[in-house]
Amino acid sequence: MFKKVSFVGAGSMAEAIITGMLAKGFLKSNEISVTNKENKERLERLVNLYQVDSSSDRGKVIKGADIVILSMKPKDIKDALHAIKGYIEPNQIVVSVLAGVSTDYISVELGLNAPVVRAMPNTSATIGCSATAIAGGKYANNEHIEKVKELFQTIGTTAVVDEADLHAITGLSGSGPAYIYYFAEAMEQAAKDAGINEEVAKELIIQTFVGAAQMLKTTKEEPAVLRKKITSPGGTTQAGVETLEKYKSQEALIACIKQAGARSVELGSAFQARSSTLK
Protein backbone atom coordinates (compact mmCIF):
# COMPACT_ATOMS: atom_id res chain seq x y z
CA MET A 1 0.00 0.00 0.00
CA PHE A 2 1.21 3.49 -0.77
CA LYS A 3 1.74 6.13 1.88
CA LYS A 4 1.68 9.09 -0.48
CA VAL A 5 1.18 9.85 -4.18
CA SER A 6 2.18 13.29 -5.46
CA PHE A 7 1.18 15.07 -8.65
CA VAL A 8 3.30 17.66 -10.43
CA GLY A 9 0.70 19.27 -12.65
CA ALA A 10 -2.96 19.69 -11.79
CA GLY A 11 -4.79 19.41 -15.10
CA SER A 12 -7.72 17.29 -16.19
CA MET A 13 -5.81 13.99 -16.23
CA ALA A 14 -4.48 14.56 -12.71
CA GLU A 15 -8.02 15.25 -11.56
CA ALA A 16 -9.35 12.16 -13.33
CA ILE A 17 -6.77 9.95 -11.61
CA ILE A 18 -7.36 11.56 -8.23
CA THR A 19 -11.12 11.11 -8.59
CA GLY A 20 -10.72 7.46 -9.48
CA MET A 21 -8.31 6.66 -6.67
CA LEU A 22 -10.51 8.31 -4.06
CA ALA A 23 -13.67 6.68 -5.39
CA LYS A 24 -12.03 3.25 -5.07
CA GLY A 25 -10.75 4.02 -1.58
CA PHE A 26 -7.19 3.29 -2.70
CA LEU A 27 -5.87 6.40 -0.97
CA LYS A 28 -7.22 8.94 1.48
CA SER A 29 -7.35 12.60 0.56
CA ASN A 30 -4.49 13.48 2.89
CA GLU A 31 -2.30 10.87 1.15
CA ILE A 32 -2.48 12.78 -2.14
CA SER A 33 -0.50 15.95 -2.72
CA VAL A 34 -0.57 18.27 -5.72
CA THR A 35 1.52 21.15 -7.04
CA ASN A 36 1.67 23.03 -10.33
CA LYS A 37 3.59 25.81 -12.01
CA GLU A 38 1.45 28.85 -11.32
CA ASN A 39 -2.31 28.21 -11.51
CA LYS A 40 -3.29 28.64 -7.87
CA GLU A 41 -7.01 28.64 -8.70
CA ARG A 42 -6.63 25.15 -10.12
CA LEU A 43 -4.97 23.94 -6.92
CA GLU A 44 -7.71 25.52 -4.85
CA ARG A 45 -10.33 23.70 -6.92
CA LEU A 46 -8.73 20.33 -6.26
CA VAL A 47 -8.37 21.09 -2.56
CA ASN A 48 -11.98 22.21 -2.26
CA LEU A 49 -13.42 19.31 -4.26
CA TYR A 50 -11.25 16.45 -3.01
CA GLN A 51 -9.61 17.75 0.18
CA VAL A 52 -6.17 16.77 -1.12
CA ASP A 53 -3.04 18.56 0.08
CA SER A 54 -1.48 21.16 -2.16
CA SER A 55 1.45 23.53 -2.05
CA SER A 56 3.57 25.68 -4.32
CA ASP A 57 6.54 24.26 -2.40
CA ARG A 58 7.55 21.41 -4.72
CA GLY A 59 9.93 19.91 -2.19
CA LYS A 60 7.14 19.60 0.36
CA VAL A 61 4.83 17.94 -2.16
CA ILE A 62 7.43 15.44 -3.36
CA LYS A 63 8.96 14.56 0.00
CA GLY A 64 7.90 11.13 1.24
CA ALA A 65 5.96 10.22 -1.92
CA ASP A 66 6.10 6.62 -3.10
CA ILE A 67 5.12 7.75 -6.58
CA VAL A 68 5.51 11.14 -8.24
CA ILE A 69 3.15 11.57 -11.19
CA LEU A 70 4.14 14.03 -13.90
CA SER A 71 0.89 15.41 -15.29
CA MET A 72 1.75 18.83 -16.66
CA LYS A 73 1.50 19.78 -20.34
CA PRO A 74 4.28 18.25 -22.46
CA LYS A 75 5.59 21.69 -23.41
CA ASP A 76 6.28 22.40 -19.73
CA ILE A 77 8.12 19.14 -19.00
CA LYS A 78 11.69 20.48 -19.24
CA ASP A 79 11.13 23.35 -16.81
CA ALA A 80 9.16 21.10 -14.48
CA LEU A 81 11.87 18.43 -14.35
CA HIS A 82 14.54 21.03 -13.65
CA ALA A 83 12.38 22.47 -10.88
CA ILE A 84 11.91 19.12 -9.12
CA LYS A 85 15.18 17.32 -9.85
CA GLY A 86 16.69 18.39 -6.55
CA TYR A 87 13.85 16.78 -4.60
CA ILE A 88 13.44 13.41 -6.33
CA GLU A 89 14.97 10.52 -4.39
CA PRO A 90 16.33 7.37 -6.08
CA ASN A 91 13.75 5.14 -4.39
CA GLN A 92 10.79 7.14 -5.69
CA ILE A 93 8.96 5.97 -8.80
CA VAL A 94 8.45 8.74 -11.34
CA VAL A 95 5.36 8.16 -13.46
CA SER A 96 4.67 10.22 -16.58
CA VAL A 97 1.23 10.47 -18.17
CA LEU A 98 2.50 12.83 -20.87
CA ALA A 99 2.03 11.89 -24.49
CA GLY A 100 5.24 11.49 -26.45
CA VAL A 101 7.81 12.19 -23.70
CA SER A 102 10.24 9.28 -23.43
CA THR A 103 11.47 7.75 -20.18
CA ASP A 104 15.06 8.35 -21.34
CA TYR A 105 14.40 12.07 -21.66
CA ILE A 106 12.96 12.21 -18.15
CA SER A 107 15.87 10.26 -16.66
CA VAL A 108 18.45 12.46 -18.38
CA GLU A 109 16.79 15.72 -17.37
CA LEU A 110 16.41 14.54 -13.76
CA GLY A 111 20.06 13.54 -13.76
CA LEU A 112 19.62 10.36 -11.75
CA ASN A 113 18.80 6.71 -12.23
CA ALA A 114 15.41 6.79 -10.56
CA PRO A 115 12.84 4.37 -11.99
CA VAL A 116 10.66 6.09 -14.60
CA VAL A 117 7.44 4.54 -15.85
CA ARG A 118 5.13 5.91 -18.52
CA ALA A 119 1.38 5.40 -18.24
CA MET A 120 -1.21 6.28 -20.85
CA PRO A 121 -4.64 6.35 -19.17
CA ASN A 122 -7.73 8.03 -20.56
CA THR A 123 -10.28 10.32 -18.96
CA SER A 124 -12.59 7.41 -18.13
CA ALA A 125 -10.29 7.17 -15.10
CA THR A 126 -12.74 9.58 -13.47
CA ILE A 127 -15.30 6.78 -13.12
CA GLY A 128 -12.84 3.93 -12.64
CA CYS A 129 -13.05 2.72 -16.24
CA SER A 130 -9.76 3.81 -17.79
CA ALA A 131 -7.80 1.63 -20.17
CA THR A 132 -4.20 2.34 -19.16
CA ALA A 133 -1.09 1.19 -21.01
CA ILE A 134 2.10 1.05 -18.91
CA ALA A 135 5.73 0.94 -20.04
CA GLY A 136 8.85 0.94 -17.89
CA GLY A 137 12.07 2.80 -18.63
CA LYS A 138 15.57 1.35 -18.36
CA TYR A 139 15.78 1.83 -14.58
CA ALA A 140 12.32 0.45 -13.81
CA ASN A 141 12.21 -3.19 -12.79
CA ASN A 142 9.24 -5.56 -12.51
CA GLU A 143 8.56 -4.50 -8.92
CA HIS A 144 8.27 -0.85 -9.95
CA ILE A 145 5.96 -1.72 -12.83
CA GLU A 146 3.77 -3.86 -10.57
CA LYS A 147 3.39 -0.96 -8.14
CA VAL A 148 2.35 1.36 -10.97
CA LYS A 149 -0.09 -1.29 -12.22
CA GLU A 150 -1.57 -1.55 -8.74
CA LEU A 151 -2.18 2.18 -8.66
CA PHE A 152 -3.72 2.44 -12.13
CA GLN A 153 -5.87 -0.64 -11.63
CA THR A 154 -7.82 1.44 -9.14
CA ILE A 155 -9.05 3.51 -12.09
CA GLY A 156 -9.66 0.73 -14.63
CA THR A 157 -7.77 -1.96 -16.51
CA THR A 158 -4.05 -1.97 -17.30
CA ALA A 159 -1.76 -3.52 -19.90
CA VAL A 160 2.04 -3.57 -19.81
CA VAL A 161 3.51 -2.76 -23.24
CA ASP A 162 6.80 -1.83 -24.87
CA GLU A 163 7.46 1.89 -24.73
CA ALA A 164 7.80 1.97 -28.51
CA ASP A 165 4.12 1.03 -28.79
CA LEU A 166 2.86 3.93 -26.68
CA HIS A 167 2.56 6.34 -29.60
CA ALA A 168 0.07 4.07 -31.37
CA ILE A 169 -1.70 3.29 -28.10
CA THR A 170 -2.07 7.00 -27.40
CA GLY A 171 -4.03 7.29 -30.64
CA LEU A 172 -6.02 4.16 -29.88
CA SER A 173 -7.12 4.13 -26.24
CA GLY A 174 -5.65 7.39 -24.94
CA SER A 175 -7.73 9.44 -27.37
CA GLY A 176 -10.29 6.67 -27.89
CA PRO A 177 -13.10 8.02 -25.68
CA ALA A 178 -13.24 11.15 -27.84
CA TYR A 179 -14.00 9.03 -30.89
CA ILE A 180 -16.83 7.27 -29.06
CA TYR A 181 -18.28 10.62 -27.96
CA TYR A 182 -18.00 11.82 -31.56
CA PHE A 183 -20.16 8.92 -32.73
CA ALA A 184 -22.58 9.56 -29.86
CA GLU A 185 -22.91 13.18 -31.01
CA ALA A 186 -23.77 12.00 -34.52
CA MET A 187 -26.37 9.55 -33.23
CA GLU A 188 -27.96 12.26 -31.09
CA GLN A 189 -28.16 14.55 -34.11
CA ALA A 190 -29.72 11.79 -36.21
CA ALA A 191 -32.31 11.20 -33.48
CA LYS A 192 -33.05 14.92 -33.31
CA ASP A 193 -33.48 15.07 -37.08
CA ALA A 194 -35.94 12.19 -36.82
CA GLY A 195 -37.96 14.06 -34.19
CA ILE A 196 -37.18 11.68 -31.31
CA ASN A 197 -37.38 13.13 -27.82
CA GLU A 198 -33.84 14.15 -26.81
CA GLU A 199 -33.91 12.53 -23.36
CA VAL A 200 -35.32 9.29 -24.74
CA ALA A 201 -32.72 9.26 -27.52
CA LYS A 202 -29.89 9.93 -25.07
CA GLU A 203 -30.85 7.01 -22.83
CA LEU A 204 -31.18 4.66 -25.80
CA ILE A 205 -27.83 5.73 -27.25
CA ILE A 206 -25.98 5.38 -23.95
CA GLN A 207 -27.39 1.91 -23.35
CA THR A 208 -26.58 0.92 -26.91
CA PHE A 209 -22.91 1.76 -26.32
CA VAL A 210 -22.90 0.07 -22.91
CA GLY A 211 -24.60 -3.06 -24.27
CA ALA A 212 -22.31 -3.35 -27.29
CA ALA A 213 -19.19 -2.96 -25.12
CA GLN A 214 -20.49 -5.56 -22.69
CA MET A 215 -21.20 -7.97 -25.55
CA LEU A 216 -17.61 -7.62 -26.75
CA LYS A 217 -16.30 -8.18 -23.24
CA THR A 218 -18.62 -11.04 -22.25
CA THR A 219 -18.88 -13.09 -25.43
CA LYS A 220 -15.21 -12.65 -26.46
CA GLU A 221 -16.40 -12.79 -30.07
CA GLU A 222 -14.78 -10.71 -32.76
CA PRO A 223 -16.50 -7.39 -33.57
CA ALA A 224 -17.06 -8.52 -37.18
CA VAL A 225 -18.84 -11.67 -35.98
CA LEU A 226 -21.13 -9.74 -33.64
CA ARG A 227 -21.87 -7.21 -36.38
CA LYS A 228 -22.81 -9.91 -38.87
CA LYS A 229 -25.14 -11.56 -36.36
CA ILE A 230 -27.39 -8.50 -36.37
CA THR A 231 -27.00 -7.66 -40.05
CA SER A 232 -29.79 -9.55 -41.78
CA PRO A 233 -29.65 -9.55 -45.60
CA GLY A 234 -31.86 -6.78 -46.94
CA GLY A 235 -32.63 -5.53 -43.41
CA THR A 236 -32.36 -2.19 -41.68
CA THR A 237 -28.90 -2.80 -40.21
CA GLN A 238 -27.52 -3.77 -43.60
CA ALA A 239 -28.87 -0.56 -45.06
CA GLY A 240 -27.14 1.43 -42.33
CA VAL A 241 -23.83 -0.44 -42.61
CA GLU A 242 -23.83 -0.04 -46.39
CA THR A 243 -24.15 3.70 -45.90
CA LEU A 244 -21.20 3.69 -43.48
CA GLU A 245 -19.21 1.79 -46.09
CA LYS A 246 -20.27 4.22 -48.80
CA TYR A 247 -18.79 7.07 -46.79
CA LYS A 248 -15.69 4.98 -45.96
CA SER A 249 -16.32 5.38 -42.24
CA GLN A 250 -14.08 2.48 -41.23
CA GLU A 251 -11.20 3.82 -43.28
CA ALA A 252 -11.74 7.26 -41.75
CA LEU A 253 -11.60 5.87 -38.21
CA ILE A 254 -8.43 3.91 -38.95
CA ALA A 255 -6.85 7.05 -40.40
CA CYS A 256 -8.00 9.00 -37.35
CA ILE A 257 -6.23 6.62 -34.96
CA LYS A 258 -3.08 6.57 -37.07
CA GLN A 259 -3.00 10.36 -37.24
CA ALA A 260 -3.40 10.69 -33.47
CA GLY A 261 -0.49 8.28 -33.03
CA ALA A 262 1.57 10.23 -35.54
CA ARG A 263 0.88 13.40 -33.59
CA SER A 264 2.21 11.68 -30.47
CA VAL A 265 5.40 10.85 -32.38
CA GLU A 266 5.62 14.47 -33.54
CA LEU A 267 5.13 15.83 -30.02
CA GLY A 268 7.76 13.49 -28.65
CA SER A 269 10.40 13.91 -31.37
CA ALA A 270 12.15 16.80 -29.65
CA PHE A 271 12.29 14.92 -26.35
CA GLN A 272 13.60 11.78 -28.04
CA ALA A 273 16.28 13.78 -29.85
CA ARG A 274 17.41 15.52 -26.67
CA SER A 275 17.62 12.30 -24.66
CA SER A 276 19.72 10.72 -27.42
CA THR A 277 22.06 13.71 -27.43
CA LEU A 278 22.58 13.74 -23.69
CA LYS A 279 23.06 10.03 -23.02
Rank of each mutant, 00 (worst) to 15 (best):
I180Q: 05
A273P: 10
G128Q: 01
R274F: 11
K138V: 13
F183W: 10
I77D: 06
I169M: 08
K4P: 02
E245Q: 08
S275P: 03
E266I: 12
M13C: 09
I77N: 03
A125G: 06
T231K: 09
S54K: 15
E15M: 01
Y87A: 09
N197S: 09
V108A: 02
F7D: 02
T237D: 06
V200A: 14
K85N: 11
E44C: 10
Y139I: 07
Y139T: 06
F271C: 14
G195T: 05
R58L: 12
I155E: 05
G261Q: 04
Y50G: 12
S264F: 05
K228G: 07
S33M: 00
D53P: 05
G171S: 06
S275D: 05
K228D: 07
Q250F: 15
I93V: 04
S124T: 05
V97K: 06
P223E: 01
A131H: 00
V116M: 09
A159K: 06
K202T: 14
R263S: 12
V68H: 01
A260W: 00
A255S: 01
S232G: 06
K138A: 09
V47R: 14
R263W: 08
A262C: 10
F271N: 10
K85T: 09
L166E: 01
I18D: 04
L27A: 10
I196Y: 00
I169Y: 02
M72P: 04
G195C: 02
M120Y: 01
K192R: 13
K60N: 06
D57K: 02
K75V: 12
G211Y: 02
K246R: 11
N36T: 01
E203T: 10
I180R: 15
R58T: 13
V34S: 00
K279N: 11
D193P: 13
T103H: 09
A164M: 05
V161C: 13
N141H: 13
S96N: 05
Q51I: 04
N91G: 13
I155S: 07
K40R: 08
F271Q: 04
G171K: 13
Q92R: 00
A16Y: 06
S54P: 06
I254V: 11
V148M: 07
A270S: 15
S96E: 10
V5C: 07
R45S: 11
N39G: 09
K149Q: 15
K63W: 00
A213R: 03
V94Y: 12
I127Q: 13
T170H: 08
I206K: 12
A255M: 04
T170K: 08
K28R: 12
E251Y: 00
A135C: 07
L46A: 11
T19Y: 08
L81D: 03
N141C: 12
K147H: 12
A133D: 04
L43D: 00
I32M: 00
V265Q: 10
Q259D: 11
A23S: 13
E150G: 13
L151D: 04
E41H: 02
K217V: 15
I230L: 11
Q92H: 02
